[in-house]
Every structure is written in C-alpha cells, then in structure tokens.
Design a protein around this nucleic acid. Structure first.
Lengths: 341, 341
DNA sequence: TTGTATTAAGCAATCGATTGTTTCATACAA
DNA sequence: TTGTATGAAACAATCGATTGCTTAATACAA
C-alpha cells in the first residue's frame, strides 16, 4: 500500500490537514517552521506521493487532457500528438490518446469516457458526420480545441492550416509546366480539410481558365487502398489526366503511386504528382515527391496553448481560430506533360 | 454540473446506494422490479454518467493503463501503441501514452505519475540505464509488461522479437552474394535489442568465418543524425565495407542512406544495405529496401494480453516472456560486392 | 489579573461512488 | 397474537486529499 497523507501525519504526530498545508504552502494559514521541517522530513522518509485520484475528486482538476484523433499512426497526427504530450509533460499534464478510425460512434464514446474521467480539456480532430455532440461539449463549457477540422458556425477554439495557399502554389506550378488536365484525389468526403482543399482546387481551375472535369475528382477515404482504387479508376478513363493533386495525405498518395506504377506509367515522365504528405520520407522515395506539408509541431503547440488558456482562465475568452502556414516543396515528381500518350 | 448518483436518487426518491446497486446488478442484494425501472428511467432522463474518478478512488481500480515508450513517432512503437489502445478500448481501458526520449529521468517521473494516478498496469519499453526503478515496481506488484527490451535476471512479463533469426538470414544473404566486409550500424548502446542484434551479428561472422573488424561497428543513438554521422564515418575508412546491416531502425537507416548518396555511392551497386525497418515505405524508396521488420500488431496484442491477465488474476502468475517472429524481406538494396571500388 | 490579539494546528465536511451492515415492513407460521 | 423469516431499501463508513472554520495556546496590553 502506498503512503497516504494520514500515514505521514501519524508519523509526525500532526493532523493530515497540517501536512497538506505544508505541501501546498498556502499563504493564509501559517505552520511553524519546526513542524514544517518535521513534516518535510517524514514526507521524504516515507516516500509519500500524493494520490492523484483523490486530489482530482476533491479539487475538480485532473491535470489530464484528452486527445482524440482519427489515427495516431498517421504521421500528421502522430507529430501533433507528440508535441502536445511534450508540452503537457512540462506543465504536469498527462495525455489520454484516443483513436476514432473516423468512426463517430467511437468518438462519442470516447468523449463520454473523457468527461467521466474529469479531464480538464479536450483536443479533437472530429469525424464531422454531425456536430451536436461537439456543441454539447461547448455548452458544458468544457475547454476544447479543434484541430485540422472545423465546423461552419461553431464558435470554438481551433487550429487549422492554410492549405489553400499551397494548393494555389501547386496548381500554378502545374499550369506553368503546361498541364491542363489535372485530377484531384480526395481523401474522405465531408471532412473540412478535404472540402477546403477541393474548394481551392476548383478556384484555381477557374483562375487558370481550365475546364472542370467531374471524372477527375475521385476517391473517398484516407487509407492506402482508397488511394490505390481511386487512382486506378482515374487511369482507366478514356481521357486520363496528366497531373494529379493528391489531397488525402501520405497513405492515399502511396496507394496512388502503386496504381501508377502498376499501370506501367512513370512519374513524372508520364504523369506529374503533387501530394499532401507529412512524413520525412519524400526525399527518399523512388521519385522524390513534390509535396505540400504542414508545420505539425506548431499546430500541436498552438492547440495546447489555446487549451491551457481556456483551462486556466476564469472568465471565458473569445474563441480563436489559429491558421498555420503550409509548405510547398518542389522535388522531382512534376514535369511537362507527356503529349505522346 | 454533471448529474451524480445523489441527483438520480433524489429524483426517484431512493437512497444513492440503491441506485448504485441497480446499476451494478449485484446478485446478493435484491431491488424490486418497480424501483429498478424507475431508477433506470431516471438515469436515462438525467443522462447520468458515473464519475470515474470517484469510482477509481473507492474501488482502487482505474481502468487505465500506462504506456511508456521512447517515442511514439517511431513507427515501431506507434503501431504497437495503436494496437494496445484498440484492445484497451474494447475492454473499457483507457491508455495514457508517455514518451521518454530515451531519458531515464523522464521515465522515472512518468512512472511515479502513473502510480500516483492509480493505473491498473504499465507497459514499458525501458531506457535501460539502470533497473532499480523497474524492480521497485515489481516489488509493489504493479502489473507490468516489458516490450522490446528486457533485463538479465529480471523475472517479469515481457514481449520481445526474434531478431536473431532474421539477422542470421540477412547475414547468410550477404555471404551468399559474396560480401566479406560487412558493417554493423548500431542504434543506441546498452539497449537490449541492440545488444542482442549485435551478438547475433558477431555469431554470424564467426559462423561464416569472417574477420571481425572493430571499425565496422559504428553508431550510437536512434535519430536520423546518428545514422548519418556514423555512416559517414564508416565510408571515410581507408578500407570501407561492401555491405551494411543497419540495426537502429527507420530513422537511422534513412540517415545512412543520405550519407551513402552524399558520398556519391549507389545502392546496391556500390554498397549493399539491409535494415531493421518498420514502416510501410520500403517498397516505395529510391532503392526498395531489403528489410527485417516486426509483427508490431502481434507485439501489442501479446503485451496487452499479458497485462490484462495480471490485472485480472487474483494470484500472481509466473512471468512469461513471449518472443515474436520477425520478417526478412528481400527487395533491391542488396547485390554482389563491387570489387572495382 | 483579566481581556484581547495573534499564531499554530486540529476538526470535520466535502468530492462521488461503493458496499457491509442495519433497519423496516410485510408475510407467513405457530 | 406473537414470533420468525424474508425481501427491499436505508444507513454509514470508506477511499485520500483539501479547505473553511474552530479551538487552543501563547503573548501582550490594559
């Protein structure tokens, strides 16, 4: 059995409350230096470590935050999670990591779990089927930060990325090379991030006076297979695109590459590729990939900071949405269209 | 404020203990069907969710497990963590993820945190500077499972991989191709896994009657830079190796590849490479990498199972060490030595 | 010597749920 | 009618730490 406050108190011959006060150094109640010393000595001798559960129950403060993401295996979320854990550690907070697999039921279950465990706040990349459960949270004044994905008309702290900017750069790059038939490989539909990227894509088409082709927008989901299947479909069209903007992230892109290779096509000779990609592999790939990537550390930092502000402030602050820049890096996966195809 | 047992009890007009018993269906005390129904109705109406903290305090059972790994960004640990979280979810356990960055002080701090929070058990890939803090845990009968790394003479549940087997396969592959000068790129020293791989490497050298060359064993650390620096050193030797076994995992290997490319060498023409590598990228790399990899899902599963057994069993079971097979996959990063160099 | 500050530490309620024990009321048998 | 068995629900202690309030003891002034 672990040592408790009572044990320490008994050992010194004082009341538990006295021990507690010594350990917290409240200004309003003074304990004599002699007793203080005796108590501190006993605390060390008995190796007393306060019971967090009891403290949480009494103080309504758990020093725990919940992090809900689709999949911690995704390098994008992994890096963000790592940063949040790091900053949490410095501030004595512990992080409970929850994966939803883009399943909203799981998300809701976790949300209830976390609430029941009395977490001080939640950082979430929501599944975005519906938003009532998020609204409930806000109503209950649970400190909350959305990452990566936001809802229309929902006034809450959030950290997102300026994907739009990089999409325009990517499209401009394609256009300069002479591409006119550019396909858009989506990730999962209904996700804010994907809708935002698609919107920018369409705007860019308009800006560069390119024809919109419904068949050139394909895919649904964030898995390897999703990218693979969608790209196969794309490459089976009568008229195939000469360039692809892969917006579903690392796995989807790898799936796309597999499909392209299987079709006997070569990147960038036969088809150009720009991808949203967040791990450190692009320079090492068969064709070093031209990418749009995120400052994941910054996203994590900002999310944690916003959450901590909410947790520590007495009066509710006005929710902020922080938008982080993105990075467009040209490598070798883009070239002029191959008009002999 | 969230609804409490008391609220529900007051709403129905019964005692809180009655509500508690209805919700737990203890066999020994019977509650009339009428009251049961009324209570269940109230629970729904008031949307009562039990307070986990209070329950934990009273029951000495938190339905929480701690997972301590060097770095959740490492695909090896990420996949294991994911599996543990998954199985935990199914059994109503929540996982607190802690990264040590191979810093034992951080490990100890986290261990104390977790204990203070009353976790039901801990799964840990320890830093392995010393082992007293782990021994303490065992003494306190904390359910515990080591992963990836074990200590000599420490009787505790563990899940490790049969790296040795794959090292022999890799070495046999090198030898068959005609390599005689094979280097070993270590990860961080003093880690069981690395020592184990090195031991197997040396045994293989003996078996194939190859000369042992001290200069051919290099590196210390698990980061990109560590692999990069060590490999540069290796390639600056008067007599350079014709093959490298990279034992430090994904990042170290990428560092090695960078160094090789920078030196103007080509894989596998000038130098052959086999690496411990655990993400899904090898087929997509510039030179598809011949790898030794782990069944990470299985490792996670076994670790969770072992932990759960300890948590749920009354009498202490005899500790087991589970050893999981590894996978040796030949791709394109190995060839005959280039004797013109 | 009595009264009043002042300082130091103890008392007891509280957080919310669980659980061994007790009480109460009804039913049934003697 | 009295006594006992039984079923249903209340009581109260507990987990460990925190904290507003009270008490005790000492010092000092009147």
């Amino acid at each position: 059995m672990a040592t408790t406050l009572k044990d320490v108190a008994a050992h010194v011959g004082v009341h538990p409350s006295t021990v507690s006060r010594v350990l917290h150094g409240k200004e309003n109640l003074k304990i004599s230096e002699k007793t203080t010393k005796k108590i501190l000595k006993a605390v060390k001798e008995l190796n007393y470590i306060p019971d967090f559960t009891a403290r949480t129950l009494r103080m309504k403060k758990s020093f725990t935050i919940g992090l809900i993401v689709p999949d911690i295996l995704n390098p994008y979320f992994a890096r963000i999670a790592r940063q949040i854990e790091q900053l949490g550690f410095e501030k004595k907070y512990t992080v409970i990591v929850c994966n939803t697999d883009e399943d909203q039921d799981k998300e809701i279950l976790y949300l209830n779990q976390l609430t029941s465990r009395g977490v001080d706040g939640i950082i979430i990349a929501p599944v975005q089927e519906t938003k009532e459960h998020i609204e409930n949270l806000i109503e209950k004044k649970t400190p909350l930060v959305l990452i990566d994905r936001i809802f229309d008309n929902l006034n809450v702290n959030a950290v997102i990325s300026n994907d739009s900017d990089s999409v325009f750069k990517a499209m401009s790059h394609f256009v300069k090379l002479g591409h006119e038939n550019i396909a858009f490989l989506k990730g999962q539909e209904n996700i804010y991030t994907i809708k935002d990227r698609l919107k920018s894509f369409n705007k860019a088409l308009t800006k560069y006076k390119l024809k919109k082709n419904k068949d050139f927008v394909v895919g649904n989901g964030f898995e390897f297979e999703d990218g693979y299947e969608a790209t196969l479909k794309l490459l089976s069209l009568e008229k195939t695109p000469s360039a692809i903007l892969s917006a579903g992230g690392d796995l989807v892109t790898l799936g796309a590459i597999k499909a392209i290779v299987e079709k006997g096509l070569s990147i960038p000779k036969d088809i150009s590729l720009i991808a949203f990609f967040d791990s450190y592999y692009p320079p090492f790939l068969a064709t070093p990939l031209t990418t749009i990537s995120h400052y994941r550390k910054q996203i994590g930092e900002n999310a944690f900071k916003l959450l901590l502000e909410q947790i520590e402030s007495k009066k509710p602050e006005k929710p902020k949405t922080v938008c982080i820049d993105t990075r467009f890096e040209i490598r070798d996966s883009t070239a002029k269209p191959n008009n002999t195809l």
